[in-house]
Computed example of a mutant assay.
Amino acid sequence: MSLTGKYSLGILLTFVLLALVMLYVLPLLNTITGTANITAEKFLYTRIVLWFVLLIIFLYSFFIEKNSFLLWKDKKYSISFYIGAVISLYFICTFGSAFLNVLITLLIHEKYSGKLLQLSSIFKNNYLLIIFTCLTAGFLEELLMRGYLQTRVEKIYNNPYIGVIISALLFGILHSTYGTVGQVLIPLFIGCVFALFYKLYSNIKILIICHFMYDFVSLMMMNFIDIKHLSAF
């Protein structure tokens, strides 16, 4: 198999594994335990399984592709650039997401995500789970969506715009399990912002930090304020 074929298979494997985890791990845990409610323990297991997905893709890149997991070497920047980039990305994503949410609410009168409402209860005062969830999202989603997927799509099509678009689309689709239009379009928007930044500046660490911060602030707000009153959701 050619290297392009291996890249294509790796992209498919990544998306399928992530989709399977998002769709079936929790129902499987419900079947095993004989309960249907979402608990902190069950949710923790779903995050742990995601780390195994990262391990599988890392091993695939090493043994099958025989290539580095990150095709783009991280560029080095000053501390001031790191701070400025993280803050800028955070506010772009926050205000952009809030604007999209308001627009979606006005156009289709969409309510908040029922799944997020359920999750808000398990995060209540569970700070270790909040931190672990944010670390998992920050590391895994950026390494897989931007570090792995985006770079290989660009290699296959020899087009940086295709890499940005496809990685952002897959990022949005994977969030469709939350059951609302907003939970697809907002991650799609964030995916575009992050993918463009990664293409321009080639630094995955900044994206991981920003992603962690965005999710951490969101979950902490959800911890103290009723999700029904949070327009950013």
Rank of each mutant, 00 (worst) to 15 (best):
I104M: 14
G163F: 01
E142Q: 14
A232C: 10
F197D: 05
Y127C: 10
L200V: 07
N67S: 14
Q118S: 14
K115Y: 11
E41N: 12
S218R: 02
P27R: 00
F197C: 05
Y77G: 09
G5S: 14
Y127R: 02
F171V: 15
K111T: 15
K76R: 14
V86I: 14
G172H: 01
K111D: 15
S202G: 01
H229Y: 08
K199M: 03
T33W: 05
V193D: 02
N67F: 01
I173N: 06
G84D: 14
I87N: 11
E142L: 09
M145N: 13
S218W: 09
S80P: 05
A232W: 12
W51H: 09
F62M: 15
F15L: 08
M1V: 12
G10K: 02
I166G: 11
P27E: 06
L149R: 02
L117G: 10
Y77W: 07
F132E: 03
L143M: 15
L128K: 07
L28G: 08
L135V: 13
L103P: 03
F123T: 12
K75R: 13
R47P: 01
T33Y: 09
F132M: 11
I131S: 06
I225E: 14
E154M: 03
V25I: 09
S8H: 04
I162E: 02
L17S: 13
Y90S: 05
S68V: 07
L144G: 00
F81H: 09
L143R: 02
L135T: 12
L116Q: 02
T46W: 07
T151C: 11
L89R: 07
S167A: 13
A98V: 13
F194I: 13
I225G: 04
Y7A: 06
F139N: 00
C134L: 01
G34V: 07
L116T: 02
L29E: 02
T4C: 06
T46E: 15
D226F: 02
H109R: 03
L3V: 14
F224E: 14
T133R: 02
L200N: 15
M145Q: 07
I227D: 11
I206S: 08
A40P: 08
L3G: 00
R47D: 00
T180C: 01
S68W: 04
E141G: 12
